[in-house]
Amino acid sequence: MPNPIRVLCVDDDPDFADLTATYLERRNGRFAVETATSPERGLDLIEERPPDCVVSDYEMPGMNGIEFLRAVREDRSDLPFILYTGKGSEEVASDAISAGVTDYLRKQSGTHQYAVLANRVSNAVDQARAERRLQEERRRFQLLFERLTQPTVEVEYEDDEPIVRRVNPAFEEVFGYEASEIVDDSLDAYIVPPGREEGASRINQRVQAGEGLESVEVVRRTTEGDREFLLQNAVYDDDSGGFAIYTDVTDREA
């Protein structure tokens, strides 16, 4: 089964919980639904076998749906949680939103409600998975950015000036500028030597036009003096900035 979705349905009415589980699994073959008749048991199951989504009633003895949601959010801030309740009011909805609910759905008569619920569950899980993939990609990119042995800087253009957003450790080491010193300032103001502003301006124009730079030879200023570099770049899709990657070739043999 491609991309199965594990759903935990929590309702103190076991018949309704089982009915919800049955209809959800009929509506979507990706679903595997487990039930719990109390929030306390639900918390145990979440700890033992974390689901992809929780569907919970509101009115339950001992701990209501909002309290259950808050308990879940203490450890699992990104777990999709749908409050599926027969008690509907602006106050309940407001409390649910404040507690971090993913979605809120009123119980209704008839089987159509399960089609709506199945769609909400599927959308919530797909979105959560996409966000986790994005976060993982960002984490991996940040790791790559930090570990690059070549000085690398990310800039965004403001009024045609390349404003530094972040630099990697290799940039700090080679150029001699601490990130805290240079971030949010113009890159050119720090590393373009006097007399080379026109060449830097042409490069900025090319980058803002979405053009790639492949091994452009430049002279750039470091805290230890001017050095020669090969400059490459990667441009944002919207041409608002990108990454500049420098390779120090000052000591290369002629």
Rank of each mutant, 00 (worst) to 15 (best):
N3V: 12
I5S: 06
D11Q: 03
P14I: 06
T20N: 06
N28P: 08
R30V: 07
F31Q: 10
A32M: 14
T37S: 10
P39I: 03
G42I: 00
L43D: 09
D44P: 11
L45I: 08
E48T: 10
R49E: 13
P50M: 03
D52K: 00
D52E: 09
V55A: 05
S56C: 04
N64Y: 04
N64H: 07
N64K: 01
I66N: 03
I66H: 04
R73M: 02
S77Q: 12
D78H: 13
D78Q: 14
L79K: 03
Y84W: 08
G86K: 02
S89F: 03
V92I: 13
D95L: 14
A99V: 00
G100E: 04
Q108H: 12
S109K: 15
T111D: 15
H112C: 12
H112I: 14
Q113M: 08
L117P: 05
A118W: 00
N119K: 15
N119E: 15
V121D: 03
V121N: 03
Q135P: 08
Q135W: 03
E136W: 06
E136F: 05
R138W: 00
Q142A: 15
L143Y: 11
L143W: 12
F145A: 08
P151S: 05
P151K: 05
V153G: 09
E154K: 10
Y157V: 04
D159E: 12
E161H: 12
V164M: 01
R166A: 12
E172D: 08
F175W: 07
S180T: 13
I182A: 07
V183L: 05
S186I: 06
L187V: 07
G195T: 01
E198A: 14
Q208N: 09
E214F: 13
E214D: 14
V216C: 06
V219D: 14
R221F: 10
T222M: 08
E228A: 12
D238V: 08
G241Q: 00
G242I: 00
I245Y: 10
T247W: 09
T247M: 11
